[in-house]
Design a protein around this nucleic acid. Structure first.
Lengths: 225, 225
DNA sequence: GAACGGCGCTAAGAAGCCGTCAAGACGACC
DNA sequence: GGTCGTCTTGACGGCTTCTTAGCGCCGTTC
């Protein structure tokens, strides 16, 4: 779960952001001024910081520099100031993006996705542990305990990727079918049964009693880390 | 020296960008439409792409997707469209930033610095061991056990370079074809079969049972050290 | 308790992909 | 113009993967 630190002194913006981020499964904390921001960032190690420049105590650029002194977490600046110099200063101080107020929530969320895509969540590399197996999505490789490797077919990768990218979250049959086979295959739910069986045979210690690739009858499937 | 590919059909914008980027020691190339952009990106391997969405031939989002099929170079979108949906679509397709026209050159340059700061120019190990052979990518030479040398053709080098630079990682057929032959050859997958056979004949102890140049059916190839 | 729907499991045929060999086309260089 | 190395094509057999069908199990519904 991606941790997002929101730094802003306007209750309204904080409320909007908190609501929207929580709805999308981000873990959110809030700091109301620059001093708090630095303390909380040090304590909590967020994966992303959303930073308003107009803070009551410190200058925003100093907060960026303070963070960059020891953290590489991406920083998205929110600011009412639209001047070129403000943007350049913030970006050169170490910010990754600069969004001017008023901003569209959809756009901000897309920018968050774009940035976290490139700088993956702290301590959560593109590899996931599933029982004794390590699933490396970037390399498309699964390695087992004693250096053994497990081979997955393209379709199996399509399924496992979708599930593993959304740990603990239910993925509907509809979504699996459209994203792996295409929207014309919505009826072919038995494909899922065949391939989930195959995946469990390869990845579960006891395929008949799956602990990680869970069926939610009538709904879909879920990856439980 | 950071290579920047500018994709835009407006001569004025191209001139401005080229001037400013060159003055700051960037290596610049220009493409005037989407097809050219894909070809040049495959040939030249830019470290960053600046992409205008309003191109004469292809839809901008399709260009992003085309690039993302095989390249991880950062993409900054330039666009006259300011709608939220346009931004979200481009960012979710794989763009890293979205700047609306008219734009400030200083701001764009700062955004370029911010993005290249995070994704540094790619580099690689100059020599790699493959069984009894030592592959020197810089000198384009393969030396065997007793001072013997193995000769590779240009196309074979193109393939082995891509594979060896990403040890253990699956390289899609799509990426091999676009980077070695160009984006127009996406369909010619049997080229890969012929050349992989040739490489295995030269580099594998038992070409019929390859241990380093591995096929992943339906997906691509992998170099196992 | 029988019928029904959703799921797990297996296995076999079909479809598509891969490795291999060999011949023709092309271009560089004498 | 001929030779050589390299790149493109084509054909074929073998293998992996996908698709499809059938059966058994379980819980729910009538």
């Amino acid at each position: 779960m991606t941790r997002v630190l929101v730094v802003d002194d306007s209750p309204q913006i904080v409320a909007t952001l908190r609501l929207n981020l929580k709805a999308r499964q981000y873990d959110v904390q809030v700091a109301a001024d620059g001093g708090q921001a630095l303390t909380q960032a040090a304590d909590w190690h967020p994966d992303l910081v959303i930073l308003d420049l107009g803070l009551p105590d410190l200058d925003g650029v100093d907060v960026i520099r303070g963070l960059r002194g020891w953290s590489e977490a991406p920083i998205i600046v929110l600011s009412g100031r639209t001047g070129s110099k403000d943007k350049v200063d913030a970006l050169d101080a170490g910010a990754d993006d600069y969004v001017t107020k008023p901003f569209g929530v959809d756009e901000l969320l897309a920018r968050i996705r774009a940035i976290t895509r490139r700088a993956p969540a702290d301590e959560s590399p593109p590899t996931v542990q599933l029982g004794p197996y390590r699933i490396d999505l970037a390399r498309k490789a699964v390695t087992g305990a004693a250096g053994t490797t497990v081979h997955l077919t393209p379709t199996e990768w399509g399924i496992i990727e979708l599930l593993v990218r959304n740990p603990g979250k239910l993925i509907s049959q509809r979504r699996l079918l459209t994203e792996v086979w295409g929207p014309l295959y919505l009826k072919e739910t038995h494909y899922l049964r065949v391939y989930l069986a195959s995946l469990r045979r390869k990845l579960e210690a006891d395929p008949s009693r799956p602990r990680h690739l869970i069926t939610e009858p009538g709904m879909g499937y879920r990856f439980e880390p």
